[in-house]
């Protein structure tokens, strides 16, 4: 039996543990069961621990050990204090409102970022909607390219007109173009869906490949 090569060695355990958890999760397709629950709770507990470890190792400790103590940036002590105010939610209820300070600071800082940065990638998209509706090459008219440009132009405008909520929403042309826009949006969604299936199948193929060639050692 190839499956038992290197029985009980670290590599053997790795493959068998992997196979066990793979099968445990796949069993959910039949119904929710004890094996799945076991994998589920391992995954949740394990990843919570993993996040704590990686933040501890890569952010909390280097900042406090290197930046604060070694380089003397004592502001991190203040930041740490503000951050710890969040935990007052779990203490006596008369101090729970203190948690609003770190929340307000965290959210507010990103509100500023979004205000400044949201328009940035969109500007390129607006200028990309400027189309040349009469394409010529070396002085002669190109039919297919012109049709494509028209389709692109109309699709952009009609899709955007679907999202008219208050102004001009009862105007007949807006309603019609909005409806057309919705159909074109569905074509786009269909394209996304069709393109995605490949990716999703790949994910399972990766697992099946593991089970067949690494665990059972057949095929391939």
């Amino acid at each position: 039996m190839h499956m038992f090569e290197g029985f009980l060695s670290a590599d053997w355990w790795q493959v068998w543990l992997g196979a066990f958890f793979t099968l445990a999760v796949l069993s959910f397709l039949y119904k929710e069961n004890a094996l799945y629950r076991f994998a589920e709770h391992t995954l949740v507990g394990g990843y919570v621990a993993y996040r704590v470890v990686i933040l501890w190792d890569n952010t909390l400790i280097p900042r406090l050990r290197d930046n604060m103590v070694r380089d003397g940036q004592w502001i991190y002590l203040f930041v740490l204090f503000v951050g710890l105010l969040l935990y007052t939610r779990y203490g006596p209820s008369q101090y729970a409102w203190l948690a609003r300070y770190p929340i307000a600071l965290n959210v507010g800082y990103f509100v500023g970022l979004r205000m400044a940065m949201l328009p940035r990638p969109t500007m390129v998209q607006i200028t990309a909607a400027f189309r040349n509706l009469w394409v010529t090459q070396d002085g002669s008219f190109v039919f297919s390219a012109t049709v494509n440009e028209w389709v692109i132009f109309i699709t952009t405008l009609t899709v955007l007109s679907y999202f008219m909520f208050t102004l001009a929403r009862d105007w007949r042309p807006t309603q019609w173009s909005g409806r057309l826009g919705r159909y074109l949006l569905m074509v786009g969604f269909g394209a996304s869906f069709g393109n995605t299936i490949a990716g999703r199948i790949t994910l399972f193929l990766g697992r099946a490949d593991f089970l067949l060639s690494e665990w059972l050692k057949i095929g391939g």
Binding site: V111, M115, A128, A129, I152, T155, V159, Y162, L185
Partner: peptide
């Protein structure tokens, strides 16, 4: 389908989303 219909449809969607989310950001601000 991808370049001529999907890309501009995504663009229209993205511009709409930008406006909507920007109004959301301003409400927060």
């Amino acid at each position: 389908f991808m370049d001529i219909i999907n890309a501009p449809a995504q663009r229209g969607l993205a511009i709409g989303i930008f406006l909507g989310s920007y109004a959301m950001v301003l409400r927060m601000f």
